[in-house]
Write a protein that binds this DNA or RNA. Sequence first.
DNA 1: TTAACATATGAACAGTTATTCATATGTTCG
DNA 2: CGAACATATGAATAACTGTTCATATGTTAA
Lengths: 120, 120
Amino acid sequence: MEEKKPIEKCEFLCVHEDTVRAVTEKMPDEETLYDLAEFFKVFGDSTRIRILYALHENELCVCDIANLLGLTQTAVSHQLRVLKSSKLVKARRNGKTVFYSLDDDHIHSILNMGISHLGE
Amino acid sequence: MEEKKPIEKCEFLCVHEDTVRAVTEKMPDEETLYDLAEFFKVFGDSTRIRILYALHENELCVCDIANLLGLTQTAVSHQLRVLKSSKLVKARRNGKTVFYSLDDDHIHSILNMGISHLGE
DNA sequence: TTAACATATGAACAGTTATTCATATGTTCG
DNA sequence: CGAACATATGAATAACTGTTCATATGTTAA
């Protein structure tokens, strides 16, 4: 039987062990990093970003948001659920109407931070 | 022919026109919001977040990152390409090895901002 | 030049996700 | 109560995305 390996792949032969060890120690734990990714994921959709910006100014009801952004009521409602379960927006019911607003002041900071990065 | 509509859906009957108009005027333009979502989307994956945190301390080569995070070289390479095209990391070649590092200081601020939100 | 190594890339696949459609829930008013 | 309205939700579909596999590119040293 001929051993005919194509070309051996890099299997960590080139690792700089000291550096890797040092970095490993300083890394946040896996759960934190996972949660952080989940957090940013919520901002990573243009529909949700647009909703957040709409709410930047005023509280709005679902219909207002849908009208404002040219979306269906259903689509908005689904996304508001995502935003709500991520604690980015909160809801207030007034009769038939439900008003949504930003749940947290520093959501603004995060959005502004993103914009300032783009401006470079 | 019987007209038998199920139940008429909300078609923006409840819109608060003044509010909507005011918000519309203050909204950033569509392109900005789209770019912003694209920007956050890059942070919205735990592999990429982990890579960014690994690079928080030191520049690292592809093999180091793969070893450090328990990923294949290929997976890391693909993600580095995403990070690079989003201007989050930059590459420096030294012989066969390519070292990656964070491209921008305020990437740190963005990561920290996310963490501080989680801590609430 | 050739072998060995480090990284990059294209295609395929699997898992995820945003939207739509249909319908349910919850509220007000007559 | 029942009709009308505002919102929510489950299921299905379509589009997107991350990983893997196979292979290509680029670099060094013998």
